[in-house]
Design a protein around this nucleic acid. Structure first.
Lengths: 148, 148
DNA sequence: TATTGTTATACTCTATAACTATA
DNA sequence: TATAGTTATAGAGTATAACAATA
């Protein structure tokens, strides 16, 4: 029911309870992500962009698909990141129209720091769980996400 | 590790696996939330605003706290919602400075529809889990969130 | 013709700083 | 002085529509 993390509603059915729990959890986790991004002077979208580029050199259109954004939005996103020397646009070999985006050393350093900052925050969230509970949670979420 | 939902990284430790799972899950759930909001011509923030107002009549400052926004941001947010007759600003009795924000019938209808649209989407996400697994997941997430 | 990416434009969202009015 | 809220301003983020270049 709740679309807000501080709205602790009394779920009336098991289904409602699940929807509530996942929505609420997503807000709490996203807040941590946004704070980590902000601490590195990045928006959450910029951080996601860098995260994607860590092990890929995608075309603009592929970035748009992965980020669920319009191609024109990605143009601006990459432009701003490029201005900060976090990414670089390169000509796509073999297709005169295409561009591929590559992360720079600066960008890589930034995303590494952000990732390092994220872990303790997310782990702190789960401090009320035992080690066994945490591993059960990981297993369930992995199944839910279709990841084995 | 992953800051992006489509980045299925091989977590190297149980801690990394937990951070990955929760981050990934949060993106997937937020995508559903954003799509539901968009289907009702709302941003996720506007939907959160309405969600808060369902059972409250808060002051602007309280809204800012709940939404993790600056007061000036809330001014614009409420203004746009008011322009669409989704909320109404009222004078706070007993404090000439204060304002309280109330959801309108239109707003309530909209948020109800959005909530109804969200449930099947989130439930579909968890279709790979058994009923018992879903209830375990709810219990673990509730503990994590400190909600008993 | 279709695809890739950009540009032009217009909004929403957000924060900072300065302001007004009330307490 | 302190608090509640707004305004002015600036910038990021986003989409739609129209465009150029290439395929």
């Amino acid at each position: 029911m709740s679309t807000h993390e501080q709205h602790r509603s009394a779920a009336t059915s098991p289904d409602d309870a699940l929807v509530d729990a996942l929505a609420h959890l997503s807000f709490v986790v996203q807040l941590e992500l946004a704070e980590v991004a902000a601490a590195h002077d990045l928006s959450l979208t910029q951080l996601r962009l860098l995260g994607i580029l860590v092990d890929r050199t995608p075309a603009m259109a592929e970035l748009a698909t992965r980020l669920h954004l319009d191609r024109s939005s990605v143009t601006g996103l990459v432009e701003r990141a490029e201005k900060r020397d976090l990414v670089r646009r390169e000509k796509r070999p073999g297709d005169g129209r295409g561009v591929q985006v590559r992360i720079t050393a600066d960008g890589l350093r930034l995303v590494d720091h952000a990732k390092a900052a994220l872990s303790p925050r997310v782990l702190a969230l789960s401090s009320t769980l035992t080690a066994r509970q945490r591993s059960t949670l990981v297993a369930l979420v992995s199944t839910l996400l279709g990841g084995a």
